[in-house]
């Protein structure tokens, strides 16, 4: 980074620190904060979408759809997210490759499972073996995002389901009295009104999602926790220009500050949103002293 960094062993104090904190490894560490924020920014709306789908399915009149929605909510909510992450991503990846195998290699005659191996034709590999590394990373990131969305979608579905039930009956009845169809009532009355009931639940869910991001490293994404462990561990002079002892405390302290800040900012934003949503509405949120 800096010109004087060519021989770190001769440096000390701030100059050494400046060089140390700008190594390629540290740059990757800083970039991973972006990864986490990006994941949060994409996952939250996707999970909300899954949750909406799940909630609508769970209150559908068509029985199999209702069962499907309820099972999704019940099962995914019951299983610890960590256990889910440990096998689901590989299953998802294999599922996608199997679909591609069916689509791209119609004359493939070998079994897909050969002993322990999962084998598909090379065209069906996802991403293709010769794809540059960043494509693999983006793919891994998308898988992680999708998995997060499925897990948190179930929780969001539970919240939205409750919120839909919480919209006062009278509102629905009035809509029916005006001759709105079920779909119209849903679109014009239920959905706009449910958000205020859903927001406390959804904001808590957001807090839980923020704190679940350290699990990213289980999904093969090199996130802040991965780099903090990697950088904090002691290194001997043989393998690095910047040998140091066990510095994990400092890196984890930095993570702690990051998470506390993120939580504080979220709290403030969500509080404002709640004030706006409850403005003029006769709910407890609006009236709470």
């Amino acid at each position: 980074m800096f010109a004087y960094c060519t021989d770190p062993a001769s440096l000390d104090g701030l100059a050494w620190l400046a060089c140390y904190l700008t190594t390629g490894k540290h740059m990757a560490f800083y970039a991973s904060f972006g990864t986490v924020m990006l994941l949060l920014a994409i996952t939250a709306p996707t999970a909300l979408l899954f949750g909406f789908g799940g909630a609508v399915a769970a209150r559908a009149r068509f029985l199999p759809l209702r069962m499907l929605g309820k099972t999704y909510i019940a099962i995914v909510r019951s299983v610890p997210d960590i256990a889910f992450f440990l096998f689901f991503v590989i299953a998802l990846d294999q599922g996608l490759e199997y679909l591609r195998l069916l689509a791209l290699c119609p004359d493939w005659d070998q079994p897909v499972r050969q002993g322990n191996d999962f084998v598909v034709c090379s065209a069906a590999k996802l991403p293709s073996n010769s794809a540059p590394q960043w494509v693999h990373e983006v793919y891994g990131f998308l898988l992680a995002m999708f998995t997060f969305a499925i897990v948190f979608g179930a929780f969001a579905a539970n919240v939205l389901f409750g919120a839909m039930m919480a919209v006062p009956r009278a509102q629905i009845e009035t809509a029916e009295a005006y001759g709105m169809t079920r779909a119209q009532t849903f679109r014009r009355i239920l959905v706009p009104q449910m958000w205020v009931y859903a927001l406390p639940g959804l904001s808590n869910l957001w807090m839980v999602l923020v704190k679940a991001t350290p699990l990213l490293f289980l999904l093969g994404v090199e996130d802040i926790v991965y780099w903090a462990r990697e950088l904090g561990g002691s290194v001997t002079p043989r393998f690095s220009d910047y040998p140091h002892g066990d510095w994990r405390v400092w890196y984890f302290l930095a993570l702690l500050v990051f998470y506390l800040l993120l939580t504080r900012v979220s709290e403030i934003v969500l509080e404002r949103l709640m004030k706006r949503l409850t403005f003029g509405q006769a709910t407890t949120g609006g009236m709470a002293a």
Partner: peptide, 14 residues
Amino acid sequence: FVFRGSPLFIQFFF
């Protein structure tokens, strides 16, 4: 704030 605001594994570590 502190216990809600930080991931569990960091709490375990410290």
